[in-house]
Design a binder for these strands. Structure first.
Lengths: 133, 133
DNA sequence: GTAAGTGTACTATTATTACTAGTACACCTA
DNA sequence: TAGGTGTACTAGTAATAATAGTACACTTAC
């Protein structure tokens, strides 16, 4: 069960985005296993003191992004494997990657540092599908 | 002079953010040289059909981030070199990097692809400072 | 000195969105 | 049947992006 949802109300990033990022991270790193049950909307709303509607919005987004699946009346569960990956999302991520790396490099971050972080992150993730471009 | 400011009004990202990202990109890649003059607030507002206040906000942010400097009565210019780099910004960028790489890997992007893009981006940027962590 | 172009600082208004609040209903399981 | 689950809906509030318009100080060119 999740207990590591950290929400910073002072963060300008919307709460539902923070929840999405948190859960995505847990799934990507494998902290949440496939088919594992997520906290219910109401439960997570209580433990975080966030309105249930906000939690629901995060869950809805996560489902449409393929990270979780929903069974009405039972709950939300971690999706076993990313399928039907949206190519637009991949392009978005590559764009984000380029922008972050470019600015880091421009600001003086060492290439070796950047590469190391990238490799560590990859090795810690839970790759599943084939080799998309 | 800039003529490559692409603004997508259907993009949910705020217009001033799009302008910031555009100009950052031009500076990072070296398309805009140090001390080169940027279009005036009013000029860019005309060519893009965006309200001058929105342009001004983008310029103000870029200046406080150290990408450009302003001379009252003369205009805005590309900052020669990033100094006094905000360590919080570096941490932000590393976090963004980790999140993007993690999700890419999870979605099935090949490690070789990711690394290649990172290296290409670094080699195309305009590094200046020392080696910040 | 004057005029034109520059950044900057205001106030006011509108539109959008995140968030909260509350309710209702259908579904599943013990 | 009872309790927990997801879902849908309406309504209202708060924050922010964006527009609109004005004003002023500064710099440069004439």
């Amino acid at each position: 069960m999740i207990s590591i949802i950290a929400i910073d109300l002072r963060n300008p990033k919307p709460i539902y985005e923070q929840i999405k990022d948190n859960i995505k991270q847990l799934i990507i790193t494998g902290a949440l296993k496939p088919d594992e049950k997520l906290p219910s909307v109401r439960e997570l709303a209580q433990t975080t003191s966030i309105n249930p509607n906000t939690i629901q919005k995060a869950y809805r987004d996560l489902e449409s992004d393929g990270f979780i699946y929903t069974v009405s009346g039972r709950g939300n569960f971690v999706a076993p494997s990313p399928k039907n990956v949206d190519s637009k999302r991949l392009e978005e991520l590559y764009d984000i990657l380029r922008a972050a790396v470019g600015e880091l490099s421009y600001l003086g971050a060492a290439q070796s540092n950047i590469i190391e972080i990238v490799q560590n992150t990859i090795s810690r993730s839970r790759p599943q599908g084939g080799n998309k471009t």
